[in-house]
Design a protein around this nucleic acid. Structure first.
Lengths: 211, 211
DNA sequence: ACCTGAACACCGTTCAAGT
DNA sequence: ACCTGAACACCGTTCAAGT
C-alpha cells in the first residue's frame, strides 16, 4: 500500500521525534523502541527508516533536541559576575530541569554509539553552546588570552556534574551518609572554583604582570 | 535431559560470571546477552535462571566483581601523604586499569537498574571499600572529627572522575580543543583539592583553635 | 515515491517435559 | 534435582510488493 503522504518527510521527522521524546520521558532509553515510536505516530516500523538511518540516529537527534532545550532553559540565568554564585544559580535551574525530564536527560549518558561511529558535527556545536554558559560563568577567573584554560575548566565541571548526577541517580554512591545530588554538586562547584582562583593567584605571584 | 551436574550450583555461578566477563570485555554491555553467556558455558539459557534471578542480577554481580578487581589494583598504590600527588598516582593506576578493561568498566555506568529495584547491600560495601582509597588520600586535609566531610569529598571526586571518563570516552566532550581524559582529570584533582585546602584554611582563620 | 507488512536474526524469560 | 528446548512476547532492520 502507501503513498499515504499524510505527512511529508519533514513532518514525519518531527512527529517521530516528538513521539520518541514522549516515550523517552516516561519509559527511558530501554522503553524507546522503533516499534513503539512507529506505533505512536501510526506508521509501520519500516517508515522510520526512510527518515532516520537507524535507532542510533534517531536517539542522537533526540539528545540534540534535549541539549537545545536545556540551553534555552539555562540561558535565562542572569549572573552577577561572581563565578560561585552564578554557577549555583545555574545548578538550581539545571536541577529544576532534571526534575521534569529525568528519563529523557539520562539518555544522554546511557546511550553509547558503537565504537566505529562518531557524533555528528551539529551535535558538537550544540554541546559547545551549552558549555558556553559555564565558560561564561567561569570567565571572570581567567585573564584574557586564557580562553582555552577556561574552556577546559568548563568541560571538567560539566562532566563532573553529570558524573555526580548519574551516579547519585542510580544509587551508586549511597554509602553510609547519603547526600543529595545538590549538596554534592555544591561542594564540587565551591571547591573547584576556589581551586581555580587559587591557581590563578599563584600564577600572578610567581609571574607578576608589568603594569 | 539433564541433571548433567558437570558443575554444581556454585561452579555454575562462577563459570557463568567469567564467561560474562569475557564477553563484556570484548563486546560491552550491548553484546552481553543471556543466550551468549549460556552458549559460552555450554548450557541452555534456562539454566542461567537457576543461578541468577535475571540478567540485571548477573550484571550487578559482574560489576561487583569489577569493583573488587579495581580495589585490589588501586590498593597497591603507596602514597606519601600529599593529597594531590597521591591522587595523581591513583589516577595513573586507574587509567592503566581502564586501558585494559574499557568495555567492562563502562558497564558500571551504562547499566541502569529498573526504578523499582535498588542495589544490594554487598554492592554498597564493595563500593565503600573503593571510596576508602580516595578518602585515605584526602584525609590529610581534614582535621579529625570531619570524617563525613572527607567521605563526601571522596564521593564527589569519584563521581566526577567517572563523568569525565564516560563523556570523554563517548566523544561527548570533544569541542574545538580536545583534551585527553588524563589532562582533564588532573585539572579536576588539582583544583578540587586546592579548593578543599583553601576551605579548611578559611575555617581555621575564622575559628582559630585554642592551643 | 512512499509505505506496508512479512521476514530475518536476534533478544529475556518461563516452564512443561524429560532424565 | 537439575537441565533442556520450545514457546512467548518482544527487539532492530531490510526489502519485495503494493498503491
Amino acid at each position: 500500500m502507501a503513498r499515504r503522504s499524510d505527512h511529508n518527510r519533514g513532518e514525519l521527522h518531527d512527529i517521530a521525534l516528538s513521539a520518541a521524546r514522549k516515550i523517552a520521558l516516561t519509559e527511558g532509553l530501554k522503553g524507546l523502541t522503533a516499534r513503539k515510536v512507529a506505533d505512536e505516530i501510526g506508521y509501520s516500523p519500516g517508515t522510520l527508516y526512510n527518515v532516520f538511518g537507524d535507532m542510533d540516529d534517531l536517539i542522537i537527534q533526540l539528545i540534540a533536541q534535549t541539549l537545545d532545550e536545556l540551553y534555552i532553559y539555562l540561558a535565562s540565568v542572569r549572573g552577577e559576575g561572581n563565578p560561585i554564585d552564578d554557577l549555583k544559580l545555574i545548578l538550581e535551574k539545571y536541577i529544576k530541569y532534571l526534575e521534569g525530564h529525568r528519563n529523557l536527560w539520562n539518555i544522554l549518558f546511557e546511550h553509547q554509539l558503537p565504537n566505529d561511529r562518531s557524533l555528528p558535527d551539529w551535535y558538537t556545536i550544540k554541546l559547545a553552546k551549552l558549555l558556553g554558559i559555564i565558560e561564561n560563568a567561569l570567565s571572570p577567573i581567567f585573564p584574557s588570552g586564557q580562553e582555552d584554560a577556561c574552556a577546559n575548566s568548563a568541560r571538567v565541571l560539566w562532566a563532573s556534574l553529570h558524573g555526580l548526577n548519574s551516579l547519585s541517580e542510580a544509587g551508586k554512591m549511597r554509602t553510609v551518609s547519603a547526600q543529595s545530588f545538590q549538596e554534592l554538586a555544591e561542594i564540587l562547584i565551591v571547591c573547584f572554583v576556589k581551586g581555580l582562583q587559587q591557581t590563578q593567584k599563584e600564577i600572578d605571584t610567581t609571574m607578576p604582570e608589568v603594569h
